[in-house]
């Protein structure tokens, strides 16, 4: 279910402020964040985020293609490496 257009995309304001502040200073340090629900806006392109997945922070470098997705989509919350006794050659 999509979000109402009237509201516009959801962007975590604190995170957005942090990015604009970095923009002024001109540094591109990774930003640690828990805001998985935050939409990626064009201003984020070129930055690296450390997105929390409930346990650790995954490094996510934002490219142009990622605009419109949420940060959480790039930091998987589940681990599954296959069933035991797999017959891998």
């Amino acid at each position: 279910m999509g979000r109402s257009l009237r509201k516009g995309p959801f962007v975590d304001e604190k995170l957005f402020k942090k990015v604009t502040k970095q923009e002024e200073v001109g540094n591109r340090d990774p930003i640690k964040t828990w805001a998985r629900r935050c939409t990626i806006v064009p201003e984020f392109v070129g930055y690296t985020f450390l997105v929390h997945n409930g346990k650790i922070f995954n490094k996510v470098y934002i490219t142009e293609d990622m605009v419109g997705h949420k940060l959480g989509e790039f930091s998987p919350t589940r681990t599954f490496r296959g069933h035991s006794g797999g017959k891998r050659k």
Partner: peptide, 12 residues
């Protein structure tokens, strides 16, 4: 291919 490329949940 784009979804796979950016490694988002849907791509995975």
């Amino acid at each position: 291919a784009r979804l796979k490329e950016i490694a988002c949940y849907r791509g995975l």
